[in-house]
Each structure stands twice: as C-alpha cells, then as structure tokens.
Design a protein around this nucleic acid. Structure first.
Lengths: 201, 201
DNA sequence: TATCGGATAGAGCGCTCGTTCTAGATCTGT
DNA sequence: ACAGATCTAGAACGAGCGCTCTATCCGATA
C-alpha cells in the first residue's frame, strides 16, 4: 500500500499531539494548558488538532490520559519484573520514579493526578479515563503480589494502597523537590508487603 | 474600642473571601478558579478582593492554602486525639476523611494537592505554602508516633508516608467516588505502625 | 490527467481572564 | 462637624481562551 506513508504521517501528527498534550497536562494541569499551546509545541496547527480530535479539548485530554496510563504502566511493569521479591520490586519502582522525577526537574509527576482533580466535576469522560488508569496500575501490582503467594483479596487491597502511596509520595516529592518521600514510600511499602507474607492480613 | 465593629466587618469580608477561595481551589484547582467567581460566591466585589489582597490571585491563593492547611490540621488533631493507640488513631482519621469526602459529594478532597500540582512551575510562594502544609501535617502524625514510643527518626519517616498515603488515597477516592481507597489506607497504615512498634524499623 | 477525501493552515468569533482605575460609601479621631 | 482612612463598587482594558470556518495542499485512485 502506498497509503502507508500518508498514514504514518497522519499517525505521526496525531501521536505528536497526544504526547505533547500528555506532557503538558502532567506539568500544568487541564485548565492551565491551552489548545493553541499544544498545537504550537507539537508542531501542528489548530486545524490538525480539531481534525484528529473533533471532540475538542476533552477528547484530547482523554487520549492524553490514556497515553499517560500506558506509559506509567510500562514503567511499573519494568520495575516489578526487575526483582522476584515483590517487596523489593516495589521499592525498586519508587527508585525509578524518583530518578525520573528528578531528571525532569521535578516537573513530570503522575500523568493523571493533576488533570483528574481539576476536572472532577467537569467531564465524566476524563474522570473515567483517570479511574481506569488507577485500576490498570493497581492490577499490575496485584498480579505481582498474587504470584508471590498472597491471597487474592489481600493482593487486590494491598495493591490499591501501593498505588495510592506512590501517587501521594510523588506529589509530595514534586512539591518539596526531594526524592525522600518516594524513597521512604518504597521502604515502608516493602515492610507492608513483608508483613502480609509472614502473618495475618 | 469602637474599631471593633469595623475590624470585625473587615475581617468578616476578608475571611469570607479566604474561605471561598479555599473551597474553590479544593474543588476546581488554581487555573479553574477565577477571581470574579471568588468575589461573586463570597458576596464581595472585585474592589474588596484587591483591597485585601493587592498581590492578586497568587497572594489570595497562598492565604487560601494556609487556611486549608489549618483546617486539615485541625481534623488530624481531632482524629489523632480520639484514640491512644496511634495505629487505631490513624485508621480513625481515614474514616473521618472518607465521611467528609462523601458528604461533600466527592468534591472536597485535600485542600492543597490540586493547586500544588498546577502551580509547581508558576509560583514559588504557593509551592512553599503547600510544602509547609505537608510539613505541619506530618509533624502532627510524627508527634503521635513519638508519644507511642517510636524512635525519633522512625516516627518522622513513617509520618511522612502516612500523610502521603492519605493524600493519594483521598485523590483516588474522589476519582472513583468510593470510600474504599481511604479505608484500605487506614487498615494498611495501622499494620505498618504495628510493624514498627513490634520489631525492626 | 482529473478528481476527491484526508490533512494542514490560520484568521476570526464571542467570551472570560487577571488586573487597574476612579468614585462613592462608611466609619474614626479630633 | 469635619478630615482622613478604610472599605466597597464595578466599568474598562488588553490578552488569551476554546472553537468554527473557509481555503488550500497533497497523494491515491480511476
């Protein structure tokens, strides 16, 4: 097919817009990010943005959130696979997050939190996408915990807290411009996992 | 003093503006909240807002963050004082937070997170105020843990994770419109505190 | 070669933003 | 009673918002 080039170019522009939006939402939130800014920084024009996302800013935000969802999931997968022991693996994830956060100049934290909080009363679509992201991430952790022998329900519950703690620690790390909250989270979550493996829930 | 009435009225307007701003920041974030909306909902006028906060939106946001800081600290103090055992006390705090969140229709979560994330690169003053709030809250938790016999450094570190977990769980609870993340956080944080009291750090 | 739909381009719409500015209202100290 | 802060009131400004609209470009098919 000769259409490949055209489609590749099309995907190229669309993908550039989504990635740029994801990064800007992560850094400035939903209301703080303008569509014109997105077009400018993505090297696209307003026409292209509305061509690919006729639903406007909300549709674009949903796509960006889903992109961030997958990106963060990939980081989690890598971190969790790096160690057999789930406690060590989770602590490893906090180190990955801390390093990435510092390298971005403390600007690029959780890809969905800021947008989620701002748009809670505004857009049900965005809220759904954010909720789905949390679900995907905690499912990855839960699977790791199950593999290590935790009971189904314990694994599910603990995984939710793991994701929540990572999220909160990442936010605090950004505000304080320090890796400490994330590294402490890693240490404490490891203890919590150990407590589950040894004894009562 | 006859000035009392005037000052009271002045404080009245100022206080109304601050409280309204705090509530709106909590619900809509920084960029999503307009000064005209604040004035309208506070029953004040633009002139009054700029009279009391000549520094404009940023100065107003700092005052609102500090108000939210104290409000949340008061809730923490109450929750922590309600039980002797720090693990039970922290779990009690999660129940207080869950109830308050649900009563607000899942709209009023952590009073600083949304604003903090949005203004990270924008205003150093706001960032400082948010960082100070986290510090105050974790210090309250640390004090409770110290009273229960934890070593100074353990108490400080664990308190930071407690606040981070509460924060993350509150965010997730808002997005999912469910108390579960907060209640799970309470259960797991209680386990974590017990682990510290019984054995190694 | 003629045609046609996907993609690009950006001027312009109505609106709201944060802020400034001038006037008037209200109360205090003398 | 008068002067002078303090506080209230809201019109007006330039800038930027999300979005619509028309015009053009370009590669693929017939």
């Amino acid at each position: 097919m000769r259409t490949t080039d055209q489609q590749a170019a099309a995907l190229g522009t669309r993908e550039r817009i989504v990635r740029t939006t994801a990064r800007l939402l992560q850094r400035q939130g939903y209301e703080g990010t303008g569509i014109k800014q997105i077009a400018r920084e993505a090297g696209a024009t307003l026409g292209s943005v509305y061509h690919f996302f006729p639903g406007g800013k909300q549709e674009l935000a949903v796509a960006a959130i889903q992109h961030g969802d997958q990106e963060f999931a990939e980081l989690l997968r890598e971190g969790l696979a790096a160690e057999d022991d789930p406690a060590e693996a989770i602590a490893g994830c906090t180190r990955l997050l801390a390093a990435a956060l510092r390298e971005s100049g403390w600007a690029e934290g959780c890809p969905v939190t800021a947008t989620a909080l701002e748009t809670l009363g505004t857009s049900a679509d965005i809220q759904r996408a954010c909720g789905a992201a949390f679900g995907h991430w905690s499912e990855l952790v839960a699977e790791k915990l199950r593999t290590a022998g935790l009971a189904e329900e314990d694994a599910r519950a603990l995984a939710i807290t793991v994701i929540n703690t990572l999220e909160g620690a990442e936010t605090t790390a950004q505000v304080l411009r320090s890796e400490e909250p994330l590294l402490l989270a890693g240490r404490h979550l490891a203890m919590l996992v150990h407590a589950h493996r040894q004894g009562a829930p």
